[in-house]
């Protein structure tokens, strides 16, 4: 018995298959990065979104190409979902000239302005006002694009969140605020750092709709984000969506995860968004087991190729050190 999925009209069966593969691309990308860090093959730091694939893939799935996103320090998934090029991403993490930022930005500054990704951000909450500004451009130039603004539970306690959401609300700007509540701001549990039970409850303070979404459920994410995007595109203003999710890995590469239990981690692993999406697609007859295997394998292969691309790419010339500095 095939269950018909209730989804936004823009989400075709082909798109669903692409999304399934995309989720694996995100997971394999970050797992690969994790391994390289462990082996000391990449330096600096990085923030992995393993476990949070659904909120990136599902939210961005309902966008049109002209729409924009503003990402966070945990931004590899957002970039991949916004048609990011995993070769350029991996090359950036390797600090190579062929990377998105010519090897000068690293994990926290990957941006793809042409594709509408206005960048990851190393400052918690730093991207929220930027997203509001990008939405202001859309409104003033009548470009009809919507901005998805990603941030975490930690960022919702920054002053920039309050100021920027209020500004977007009073100006009815086409922006959707997506709080990826992965339960911890570095080591700080959300329940210790925030008195309200749900971050989405704060929407009331700005006179905008707030929604709580299961951040591991692709179908729910696509439907809820689509509704908020349509609302924004119609000129009605912003929505605050809280995705309840979890990062399987630590905050960054140097995290012993002393602040949470292995039991809790296992509970969340059981809610794996990729696994659930696969079950949904199998049940709906969109995907067969064999097709699922092929897509997963393709994703794995693409990440391997990205690694090869990165490794084969040249280091930036020392002559580029002061390039792109104008003052």
């Amino acid at each position: 018995m095939v269950t018909k999925l209730s989804l936004p009209t823009s989400i075709t069966d082909e798109k669903l298959k692409d999304l399934y593969k995309e989720m694996w691309l995100i997971r394999y990308f970050d797992e690969k990065v994790d391994q390289f860090f462990a082996k000391g093959l990449i330096h600096g730091t990085t923030h992995l979104c393993v476990g949070q694939e659904a909120s990136a893939a599902g939210s961005i799935a309902v966008l049109e190409p002209k729409d924009k996103i503003v990402s966070t320090h945990r931004g590899h998934g957002h970039c991949i979902s916004k048609e990011g090029d995993v070769n350029k991403m991996m090359a950036e993490l390797f600090g190579r000239e062929t990377g998105y930022c010519k090897g000068k930005g690293g994990s926290m500054h990957i941006a793809d302005v042409e594709k509408g990704n206005l960048g990851a951000n190393g400052i918690v909450g730093g991207g929220i006002p930027l997203a509001v500004g990008a939405a202001l451009t859309s409104k003033m130039k009548k470009e009809q694009y919507v901005v998805l603004c990603f941030f975490g539970d930690g960022a919702s306690n920054e002053g920039s969140f309050h100021e920027a959401v209020n500004l977007a609300a009073i100006w009815d700007l086409p922006v959707v605020f997506i709080c990826e509540n992965n339960q911890y701001g570095m080591s700080g549990p959300v329940k210790d750092m925030t008195r309200v039970e749900h971050i989405a409850d704060r929407a009331a303070a700005y006179g905008i709709p707030g929604k709580i979404v299961d951040g591991c459920d692709m179908v729910e994410i696509m439907n809820e984000v689509d509704e908020a995007v349509q609302y924004a595109r119609a000129g009605k203003g912003p929505t605050l969506i809280e995705m309840k999710t979890y990062r399987w890995k630590g905050h960054s590469k140097s995290d012993a995860k002393k602040y949470r239990t292995r039991e809790e981690e296992n509970e969340w692993r059981a809610k794996d968004g990729i696994k659930r999406f696969k079950e949904t697609l199998l049940e709906a007859g969109v995907l067969t087991e064999d097709e699922a295997k092929v897509l997963q394998e393709q994703a794995k292969q693409e990440i391997e190729e990205a690694v090869q691309f990165a490794e084969a790419s040249p280091e930036p010339s020392i002559d580029t050190l002061e390039e792109d500095v104008y003052a």
């Binding site: 924009k68 503003v70 302005v113 206005l118 730093g126 929220i128 006002p129 930027l130 997203a131 509001v132 500004g133 990008a134 939405a135 202001l136 451009t137 859309s138 003033m140 130039k141 002053g159 920039s160 100021e163 920027a164 209020n166 500004l167």
Partner: peptide
């Protein structure tokens, strides 16, 4: 809201 309006200026500038 100096943080928001400065950030909105940056975001608007970045988008045209």
């Amino acid at each position: 809201s100096e943080a928001a309006i400065s950030g909105a200026a940056v975001g608007a500038a970045l988008t045209g």
